[in-house]
Design a protein around this nucleic acid. Structure first.
Lengths: 215, 215, 215, 215
DNA sequence: AATGAATGAGAGTTCATTCAT
DNA sequence: AATGAATGAACTCTCATTCAT
C-alpha cells in the first residue's frame, strides 16, 4: 500500500525476469540481465528480493496465485463436474497459451530441482490438485463421473494431460492455439479412448484392469 | 565415443552422476562430487566425457536408448492396441519406479532448460511418442480405439498421464508401488472418467466437444 | 574502451602488471598476483580487461603509443638525418633505460609467441620502422647518408642494434646507463667499423667496400 | 654409445619439439603434442627428458652447440677480421634461414622469460659474443677495424643486426633468402651509413658523438 | 530509494607428470 | 624400454551480492 511506486518497480523486475528466464534459462540468466531488462541497477534488485532464487519463487507465488487461484470461484461452483473440468482446462490452457514466456517459466524453469518442485507442489499444485479432486468427487456424487474411479489417479491424470499439452506446445516450433485443445482433452478424459468394437484380446485385459483397480 | 580401456569406469561415473544429480540437482552438483562418488580423480571424468553437460546428456542417451528403445519389440507387436498400451505403461512406470534416482534425473534434472528439453524431445521423446501414436492408430484400425480420436492429442495425453504419475511419485513422501498404477491409468485412458448418468448440463458440453473435435 | 569510473584503477593494474610480468614472466604470473600487487580484488581486473592476455596487449598498446608514437614530432623533423637518428636512439634507450621492468616486458614478455610478435609488429613496430626508414631516406636525399644504402636493411639494422643494446642491458648484472650508448651506437652506425689500414687478405672485400665508403 | 637406438628416439622427440613449439609456441604446446608428432607415447618423453622445460633447454643446448659452436674453426682463424665477420654472418643467417621452425624456436620461443634468456646468454650467447669480440679485436690489431671502436658495443651491435634480420625474416609473410643479407649487412657494419656530403648540421653532432664515445 | 563499482568465493577444466603393466 | 590411463594441483574467469555514495 504505502509503497505503490515501489510495487511498480517490483513488478517491472518480475516481468523482466519472466522474459529473461524464459529465454536463457534460470541458471544461465544473470541477475544483471534481469536488472538491465527491468531498467534498474543491479543493486536495486536486492531492495525487492532477497536473492536470485527469491525472484523465481516470487514469480511463482505472485503470478500464480494472482492468475489462477484467484479464479477458483470463476469455475462456476454450481455447474456439473464435466462443465467445471472443461472450465478448468480452458483456464489452464488459456492462461499459459496466452503468454509463452510465462509458460516456459512454469513448465521448465520452475522445475529446475526437486527443491523447487517440492515448493511448487507444497504451495500451489496441492491446492490446484485439490480443486480438481473436489470436482471429480462432485462428479461421482452427481453421477456424471464413474463412481469406481480412483480419485487420486484421475486427478493426477487430468492435471498430467493438461501439463503435457502445455509443455508440448512450448517446445513445438509451430504456433497453434493451445486453448483450443481444452475441448478434445476433456472429451478424451471423460469418454476415454476405447472404441465400441474392442478387439477380442482386449477384453481380458480390461477385466484384469478393473479387477486390479479394486484394491 | 571416446571410450578408452574401461567401460567399467565410464559406467561407474554415470552411475555416480545419477546419484549425485538426483540428490543435489545438476547445477548444484560439482564435477568433483561425481568424481569422488565414482572413486576416480576429477581429471578422469574428462577422459570419458567432454564436460559436465556431456555427463547429463550421455546419461540420457545411453540409459534411455538402452532401457527403452531396445524394448520396442518387447511390446508384443502382435497384441491388440489396449494390451500394448498397457505394456507400455507397465514398462514406463516399472522402469522409473524401480530406480528413484534415475527417475529424478529424468523427470527433473533433464528438464532444466529448454535446451535440454529440446534435445530430450528431438532424440528420444519423439520416438517414444511415435510408438504410442502407432499403437493408437493400430487401435483405430482394429476398432479397439475410437476412430474419431485426435491421434496427436491422445498420444500426448497418454504420455502426459504416465509422466505425471512418475513426477508425483518422485515428489511424494510416501513410498508406493509406481508400477501398480499402470492398470488404473490405462483403464482410465481407455474407458474415460464419465459415468453412466451424466448430469443434464453436461450433455451440451460433450456435444460441443464432439463437434469441435470433428475438424 | 570499457573504462569505468577510475582510470586510476586501470592504471594501477597496468603498473602492477608491468612489475609482476617482469619479475615472474607473463605465463608464470597469476592474475591474482597482479590483483594483489594492484591492491584490488581478482574480479576487479576483469572490469578493466577482458582477460589476462588483454592486460599484456593493453600494456603494449597504451604505454607504447603514449610514450613513443606521441613523440614522433619531437624528433625535430627539420634536423638532418644523422641528428634525427641520434634523437631516436636517445629516446629509445632513454625510455627503456629508465624503467627496467617496462623494458623487460617489452624485450622479453611481449615476445612470448609469434602471435604476440605479429601483433607487436603489425601495430607499433611497423610505424617505428617506417619512421626510421623515412629518416634514412631523408638522409640519402640530403646526402648525409650513402645513396647506395639498401634502405630496408639499414632500417632493420638500426633498430636491431638498439634492440640488442636494451636486451643486453636487461640481462646484465651490472647496472649502467643505457642511454649513454646512444652516441657510440649512432656513431658506429654512421661511420662503420672499418679502419683505415685494412689487412692485406681483406683487400678484395674491402676494396669493394672502400669504393662506397668515400665520404 | 650404448644407447644408440635411444638416441634416435631422443632425436625424434627433439625434432618434433622444434616443429610443435614453432607452430604453437612453447607454453601453448602440450607434451602430448610433441609425443604424438614424435610417434611415441607421452610417458616415453620422460625417459629422455626430465620435464617439458628440459626439452626446450636441450633443444637449445644440443642443436646450438652442434650446429654453431662446432663451426668455430670453420670461420678460418687465419683470415682477416672483415672476412671472418662476413663468414660469421653467412653462417648465422644461413643456418637459421635454412630452417624456419628452428629459427622460430631460437628467436621467439627460447626468449620466453628472463630465466631462459639468462640461460641462453650464460651458456651459448656469451661464447658467441666472445668469438665476435675476438674477431673485432683482431681487426683492430691488424688495422682493418677502427682502433677507437668500443669493442663491447660493436660486438653487440654486430649480433643485434644479425638477430634482427632473422626475426624480421621470420615474421615476414614473403619468403626471401635470408643468407643473401649477409653481404649488405656486413658492408653496412664495416662502412657505416654515412654519405660523403653530410648535412652541415650533422657535423657538431658527430663530433659530440665522437667525444662522448671516448669515455 | 537507487546506484553500480567492487568484491572474492568457487567451479570447470587442463595438462604435466607418474606408474602399473 | 615403452606405454597411456590416471592423477590432482593449479589457474582463469564468472557472477551473486554488498555497500559507500
Amino acid at each position: 500500500m504505502a509503497r505503490r511506486r515501489s510495487d511498480d518497480k517490483r513488478s517491472r523486475i518480475l516481468h523482466a525476469a519472466v522474459k529473461v528466464f524464459a529465454r536463457r534459462g534460470y541458471f544461465a540468466s544473470r541477475v544483471s540481465d534481469v536488472a538491465r531488462r527491468a531498467g534498474v541497477a543491479d543493486g536495486t534488485i536486492y531492495l525487492y528480493f532477497r536473492n536470485k532464487e527469491d525472484i523465481l519463487v516470487s514469480l511463482f507465488d505472485e503470478v500464480m496465485s494472482e492468475h489462477l487461484e484467484g479464479r477458483r470461484r470463476q469455475v462456476e461452483p454450481e455447474a456439473p463436474a464435466p462443465a467445471r473440468l472443461r472450465a478448468i482446462a480452458e483456464r489452464h490452457l488459456g492462461l499459459l497459451g496466452s503468454n509463452r514466456d510465462l509458460a516456459v517459466v512454469f513448465q521448465v524453469e520452475l522445475r529446475q530441482s526437486t527443491k523447487f518442485m517440492e515448493r511448487f507442489t507444497a504451495s500451489w499444485l496441492q491446492d490446484y490438485l485439490a480443486l480438481i479432486g473436489e470436482v471429480i468427487e462432485q462428479g461421482q456424487r452427481e453421477g456424471s463421473l464413474r463412481a469406481d474411479l480412483p480419485v487420486k489417479v484421475a486427478t493426477k491424470a487430468f492435471f498430467g494431460v493438461l501439463d503435457e499439452m502445455v509443455t508440448s506446445w512450448i517446445l513445438s516450433r509451430k504456433p497453434y492455439d493451445l486453448a483450443a485443445l481444452a475441448g478434445p482433452v476433456v472429451d478424451l478424459f471423460l469418454r476415454g479412448a476405447a472404441g465400441s468394437h474392442p478387439a477380442r484380446e482386449a477384453r481380458p485385459l480390461l477385466r484384469a484392469v478393473a479387477a486390479g483397480r479394486k484394491r
